[in-house]
Simulated assay, not measured.
Amino acid sequence: MTQGPTPPFDPLEQTLLHASCVALRGRAVLIQGESGSGKSGLALELMAYGAELVSDDQTVLLELDGALWATAPASIKGLIEARGVGILTAKSCGSAEVVLAVDMDAEEQRRLPHPNEKTIAGVRVPVFHKVDTRYFPAAILQYLRVGRRGPQ
């Protein structure tokens, strides 16, 4: 596992996004979407399967040597909202390298989609669109573990 920067990131070099982020073995997924789109809910599901919280609702990002790193603002580190339950505490893993983004505002319709990418803070990152199935969190964790096979 690559050693990332130590939080807090330099405020002049960081980007703050409205996003949640969890990591597995230092590899993070950035979960983006409008308020109420299910960012925190997906993060909680991933955490139930073994991921660790990086940040909920607001994520600080930093490009370092071509990699994208995420951490939480100090004021919300270790906190995650569970809609209808309240603010929960969680172990935070500090910083992690973002290797995947999930767009909760776009729903994937194709059975075998071609890979999507977007640029976040100057770094190209693979993107999954929301999939409305019970196995979506498990698929994300499998991607964090070993990646994805290219287009068929």
Rank of each mutant, 00 (worst) to 15 (best):
L68R: 12
V99T: 07
A138K: 13
D132H: 10
L68T: 11
G78P: 07
L88T: 03
Y135V: 15
Q3V: 15
L141C: 01
E107Q: 09
L62W: 06
A101M: 07
A121R: 09
R148K: 12
K118N: 09
P7I: 02
Q32P: 07
H129A: 15
Q32G: 12
A48S: 15
L64K: 14
R145C: 05
A48K: 14
D10S: 11
F9Q: 02
H129S: 13
A139L: 13
Y49Q: 11
T71W: 06
T71N: 13
I76S: 11
P126I: 03
L53F: 03
M1A: 12
V123R: 08
A121C: 15
E107L: 03
L46M: 08
D105S: 12
S95A: 13
K39R: 00
I80T: 01
P7G: 01
H18K: 07
E108W: 00
V146Q: 14
C93P: 15
P73T: 03
A19R: 04
Q3L: 14
G122E: 08
L144R: 03
Q152P: 11
L53H: 04
A28P: 08
A70V: 12
V131Y: 06
G84D: 05
A138P: 02
W69L: 08
D132K: 15
V22A: 08
S95H: 02
L100R: 01
A48Q: 12
R27L: 15
G4W: 12
L68W: 11
Q109S: 09
G150I: 14
R124V: 11
A106P: 02
Y49T: 02
P5L: 08
A101I: 08
A43L: 04
G4F: 13
L100Y: 02
Q3S: 14
V131S: 09
V123S: 12
L30K: 01
M104L: 15
Q152G: 12
G94Y: 04
G50D: 14
R25A: 15
E13D: 14
T59K: 02
L44I: 11
L12Y: 14
V102F: 03
L88Y: 11
